[in-house]
Design a binder for these strands. Structure first.
Length: 225
DNA sequence: GCGACAG
DNA sequence: ATCTTGTCGC
């Protein structure tokens, strides 16, 4: 797995903000066709230490079979600051990514992409660093306003901010809380929404993301004294 | 000053 | 994110 060598994760919150603005101009955001493989990522934390666990699950785009998976443990040094989540979670995610044997064509991230104060959330950061299409699929809002989408699976409502659409609020399951989908890198909103809906299997979250969550949750309970 | 605030 | 039991619903 090839990773762009950008090693600026040991910076202050102020520097982090400047870095996001600089990298923002490097976004591709062009539409990409169907993906052969889709990966889901998630990170869990240990409450009694600074340990954090990252997990990635790669699944086939058609049959949604698990093709590969990787995990990594790291120290959460950067604090959690709304808008700067990337700087906290990416080190662990990259570490897990390097363990993968099977390449992924698309990455579904547990957080926002374009739907970010500086239009550069976790999904954008990861897509740019790993050089692949990425989608932001968050469980709650960071910025923007929206109307509640209708209760049927597939219903959408635009997520607006500063007079522009930054993503969509998507119902992935009937009567269940919607998710917030936005472009990461190398993908357009329609493809992002389509990919999320296509990878959901009866649950609120896309299967790759859901499995990555289960994976890191077990790590948190397992890898403790 | 007050409220909001991905995970 | 994490701390937590039972409980309502499919």
């Amino acid at each position: 797995m090839r990773v762009r060598t950008l090693h600026f994760w040991n910076v202050s919150p102020q520097e982090a903000m400047a870095i996001q603005l600089r990298l923002r101009s490097q976004l591709r955001l062009y539409g990409t066709g169907p993906f052969a493989t889709v990966a889901g990522i998630d990170v869990a934390y240990d409450k009694s230490s600074k340990l954090m666990f990252a997990g990635i699950v790669v699944m086939s785009g058609d049959g949604l079979e698990v093709l590969d998976l990787a995990t990594a443990t790291a120290s959460a040094d950067f604090p959690y600051i709304p808008g700067l989540l990337s700087f906290r979670e990416i080190p662990a995610v990259i570490k897990a990514w390097k363990q993968l044997k099977t390449p992924a064509d698309c990455l579904i991230c547990d957080g926002h992409g374009l739907a970010h104060p500086r239009r550069f959330g976790l999904a954008c950061h990861l897509g740019l660093l790993l050089g692949l299409s990425s989608i932001g699929c968050a469980k709650s809002r960071l910025v923007g306003t929206y109307q509640e989408p209708r209760s049927r699976r597939g219903s959408v409502a635009p997520l607006l901010d500063q007079g522009e659409q930054i993503g969509v609020v998507l119902r992935t399951k009937d009567g269940i809380a919607p998710v917030f989908v936005s472009q990461g890198d190398r993908i357009d909103l329609d493809a992002a929404v389509w990919t999320v809906l296509a990878t959901c299997r009866g649950y609120r979250l896309p299967e790759p993301q859901r499995r990555a969550h289960l994976l890191v949750t077990k790590m948190r309970l397992t890898a403790r004294p």
